[in-house]
Each structure stands twice: as C-alpha cells, then as structure tokens.
Amino acid sequence: MDLSPIWLTLKLAGITTLLLLLVGLPFAWWLSRGRSFLKIIIEAIITMPLVLPPSVLGFYLLLAFSPQHGLGKWLQDTFSVQFVFSFPGLVLASVIYSMPFMVGPVKSALQQLPASLAEASYTLGKTEWQTFKSILLPNIKPSLLTAVVLTFAHTLGEFGVVLMIGGNIPGITRVASIAVYDSVERQDYAMANNYSLILFSITFVLVIAVFVFNKYQAKSPLG
C-alpha cells in the first residue's frame, strides 16, 4: 500500500494549521474588537468557504494563480513560484478554505470574555499584546483547541478545492481524499477502504481527544 497520500495529507494539514494559527489568531482578535462595515465585509469573505461549493473556490483559485495570466503569471515571472498543480498551491488553498474553522471559534470565544479582563490588564500597565498572550488566549484554551482540531481535521478531508488547484500528481498533490476517489475510479475498493479507514481513525481520535481535553479543563484542579 502506498502511504505517501497519507503522509502528504498530514503534512498539508499540519502546515495549514500552523499557518492559520499565525494568521488566524491576530485576525480573530481584530475581528472580535468592535464592529465596522469593513469588518463585516471581511468576516463575510472569510466565512464564504463554509457555504461555497469547494469546486467554485478551487476554480477561482485556479484562475487567479494560473501561470498564463494575471497574478499567477506575475508570481511565476517575478519569483518563479507556481501555485497551480503544486504543494504550495495546496497549502494556499487549504489556508483559505479552512480559515473560518480557525477564525470563527476563536473570535466567538474572545467576544464572550468580559471586557473587564482586558481592562484590568491595561490598568496594570500591560500592552495589548501582553494582554492577548497572558490573559485572553489562556482563557479561551478549549475554544482554541477546538479551532485547531477542526482546522486540522477539515484539511484532512478536503477534496474539491485540492482537486481543482492541485490535480492528482502522486507524491506532490495526491492527498488521501483524492487517493480514495482515484482507487474507487479504478474499482480498487480494498485500497479505497484502507485510505478511508486511516482517515476515519485519525479524525475520530482527534475529535475524542478534544472532548477528553475539554472535559478535563472543566474540572481543572487548583493551580
């Protein structure tokens, strides 16, 4: 059995989750602070992948990053970077596609914290960054973990976007969900079952881990 689609999927999910932690957390924090028309528009754009057919998103990404014209051509000519049918392209598409799973839960959790927590920190002379790092983030730990696991698990299961922008190149863009589809196409149901079972098991263990962690958090001992 060729395990490369599984490793590629885990690599893609890991990198996507890490990038979304770096990008999504400050973004969620910014969105959680007050309302403005600009924030509403940006939030709507971030939420679009939840409701948009993945093939539509994949199609537009394919157009945007096609090396024949526009942004894709500029990236190709200037930096020799090609996003279409490459692993970096999969990462970019995954970051966009999974962003609502990171930003949504974190933003909601931050909004539910009493404003007085941050205010108390400011009166102690702490900056906004110190307050975010030491007060806000630690107090949304269960939501943060849920967001990380949802993002990771959602990336594991990506199909439409990945197929559109990455195609099915073994070792480069052929992730597990595409390997399942490919195996079924070839009527190799045993192989399709192997890939499916591995994906199912990984996702199930992750979700169980979140439930156990959140249950433990609720009964957190002293100190």
Binding site: S116, E119, A120, Y122, L124, G125
Partner: peptide, 30 residues
C-alpha cells in the same frame, strides 16, 4: 493618555480576576 501610562489601580465591581491565574500569579503579573 493610554490607560497603561496613567498608573491607576482599579478594583472592578465584578472583580475581573483572571480565571487562568492563581492568587500568586495575579500579583506576579502586576
């Protein structure tokens, strides 16, 4: 002037204690 530069202590009516910190950590944070 930002709150951080006013050097005012504030006791909030609902306390606004940090749920993630112990008594000692509250004071060490300050």
């Amino acid at each position: 002037l930002p709150t951080q530069q006013r050097n005012t202590g504030f006791v909030f009516q609902q306390y606004a204690l940090f749920p993630n910190m112990t008594v000692q950590e509250h004071l060490e944070y300050a």
